[in-house]
Nucleic acid binder design. Sequence first.
DNA 1: GACAATAGGGAATGATTGTTTCCGAATAAA
DNA 2: TTTATTCGGAAACAATCATTCCCTATTGTC
Lengths: 184, 184
Amino acid sequence: MDTALDRAVRVFCERGYHATSIGDLTAAMRLATGSVYKAFRDKHAVFLAAFERYAALRQEQTRSAAAQGANGRERLRNMLLSYVEHSQGNEGRRGCLVVGSAVELSAVDPVVAALVSARLETNEGFIAGLIREGQADGSIPRHVAADDTARLMICITQGLRVVGKARLSLDGKRLVAVAMKLLA
Amino acid sequence: MDTALDRAVRVFCERGYHATSIGDLTAAMRLATGSVYKAFRDKHAVFLAAFERYAALRQEQTRSAAAQGANGRERLRNMLLSYVEHSQGNEGRRGCLVVGSAVELSAVDPVVAALVSARLETNEGFIAGLIREGQADGSIPRHVAADDTARLMICITQGLRVVGKARLSLDGKRLVAVAMKLLA
DNA sequence: GACAATAGGGAATGATTGTTTCCGAATAAA
DNA sequence: TTTATTCGGAAACAATCATTCCCTATTGTC
């Protein structure tokens, strides 16, 4: 069932919610319509489950990328680099479910809107935490405004996923090098 | 007819393409179904016309905001401030049609994908131009990599629209102050 | 080995979608 | 005034959608 949900994630990522028919869903999940409706109340419930699964997976990926850094500054760089890489190639073209949900559903679906906001705030808090770690270990100057910088970095990460969908090429090293100036 | 198209833009902005039925469209445009299909070949054609109209309007707004600056650096700051303001409040909640199209349609609609890419590249070129102007007039250091910085700033602007949809508050002054460090 | 329970599959069902067609009203030309 | 033409509006169309119902097969239990 989890493997079926992973396949649902893929479809929702690249097509979005409304453009994904439950025919698309059953084909991707290799399940019949009846089976899907036995496991989930309706299409919306499938989407919510897919969203939570996607969010958990991405959070795990992001945190483990950041973990491979000796100090706060390096952990931040690794996190940004990870984001650029996930915004490129096949995965970039497929798109981010959080960004997709924010754009497609936040205005009309309060439940999804709350999930999206919670996810963005969690990520922003994580980034702000990394900045403070860097300030504690001396790799980031004290005068850097942690909260404002974190919010701007959230914009960068979300923007990367948008730009990645548009197939613009992204040079991770160079882009991140520029972004790291925010920590000067 | 142009006023009807403006209303179509609003609907497409806040609902996206697939979630907008032609019933929604006719209600917003104050036109009957027959009239819409007399003016446009199909729903897709309405969307394309709305997209071009939206893009032209936003380009005009962005350029005139930038124009009110004494040098390259100030024009860049004005442009970013304008973006933050448009990402907030009612307009922010309504959303950006370029971002929406990139996320919802770029993967499945080559025509829209081309329009979106063209728009992003135009904007990126505009930003890079402002940076070079600033370097020419001495308000931006020579060592700033114009193209890389412009691409990152495109990510910021697109990300602002995503975050604005999620109803996160955006403090223009503070956010832009942080972003301007990219020009150091 | 028989039976109950459940999970999965696929056809049937309304509802809604995009699209077309037809009709009336208003305007311009003659 | 009359004719022709454009424009808007509502009903009708086929297709597709999400959802439900029922049947089959498999599993676990007694």
